[in-house]
């Protein structure tokens, strides 16, 4: 669409800007202020300069949490993206089955995040949970409070359960926008299933997939409530991710300065990643427009 250049559009933006600025800019400024001081209360505070930043960047537990975070995000992306595409391909397209399957697939997305944790906590407990009990009956000494492997496996399984629907629904909507004529043409050419996927379906999916990967990366990067309820970050600190380290430091220990410095580092990482994705999305749309003409 060719847009009109008109700066009066700012008046339409303004109400939104005031609200978002209130909940984004003022707090962010405060975080920056905290990060250079040792704050006891509003009147008792000392300027520390960059000390907290140096301390946080060299803190081994935080470095470990960061690495763990990346490992977790990459793992769930590697599982959820292909699985989501696969599910979108086999979801029924018409009739009452389509509606039922759609609602059932959406279900995990609508459950509050801590309830997701509770569901899996109940489901995987050795004494009262179906999965925990089942695995033990099969002879596997499953225990998420003792074994790091079990805890990781369960958290990843939980995340796959919780968020694969997002990718699946995105892809499903991408697939539905392919005109039937394309498939007919492919049938006439006797195209194999694989080449239909590779040359008709996948190109249509790239756009929604980038959005999906962006959302999934970001949400997995701020995961908090689910592992907090399920494992409490344990055993040890093997499933303590960034948000939980930060929350423990900020709320639990009331260390305003260090946690603010940590917040800013966290925020810079997020900023870089979302900028890369955003630029990718925008460039793709531009190319699409140029092709479309």
């Amino acid at each position: 669409m060719n847009k009109v250049y008109d700066n009066k559009a700012w008046w339409l933006i303004l109400p939104m800007l005031v609200l978002v600025a209130f909940s984004a800019i003022i707090p962010l400024m405060t975080v920056v202020n905290y990060s250079v001081q040792d704050v006891f209360d509003a009147n008792t505070r000392f300027f520390t300069g960059t000390e907290w930043f140096a301390q946080m960047l060299n803190d081994p537990t935080l470095q470990a949490a960061l690495l763990r975070q990346f490992a977790f995000s990459m793992t769930v992306l590697a599982i959820e993206v292909p699985l989501g595409i696969g599910i979108a391909l086999i979801m029924p397209k018409k009739g009452w089955q389509a509606s039922v399957v759609l609602i059932l697939v959406t279900l995990p997305l609508l459950i509050p995040w801590n309830v997701v944790g509770s569901i899996w906590q109940i489901f995987t407990r050795g004494d009262i949970g179906l999965m925990g009990w089942g695995l033990r009956e099969l002879g596997y000494g499953y225990n998420i409070t003792r074994s790091t492997v079990d805890a990781w496996g369960t958290i990843i399984l939980m995340d796959v359960w919780h968020w694969t629907p997002l990718i699946a629904l995105l892809c499903y909507s991408g697939l539905r926008s392919i005109p039937e004529a394309y498939y007919q043409a492919a049938r006439i050419d006797r195209a194999s299933k694989w080449s239909v996927f590779r040359y008709i379906q996948l190109p249509k999916l790239t756009n929604v997939l980038v959005i999906g990967v962006l959302l999934r990366f970001m949400h997995s990067f701020m995961i908090y409530a689910e592992p907090f309820v399920l494992t409490g970050g344990g055993p040890g600190s093997s499933t303590t991710f960034l948000s939980q380290s930060l929350t423990t430091m900020a709320i639990g220990q009331q260390d305003l300065g260090p946690s603010a410095a940590f917040s800013l580092i966290y925020f810079l990482i997020i900023l870089l990643v979302s900028w890369v994705f955003y630029t990718a999305i925008m460039n793709m749309q531009k190319e699409k427009q140029e092709e479309g003409i």
Binding site: M29, T30, V32, N33, V36, Q37, A42, R45, F47, G49
Partner: peptide, 15 residues
Amino acid sequence: MEWMVWTVPTTIFFS
């Protein structure tokens, strides 16, 4: 504004 604990360097930064 008091609760935002402004300092001189951060004020200069945001300005």
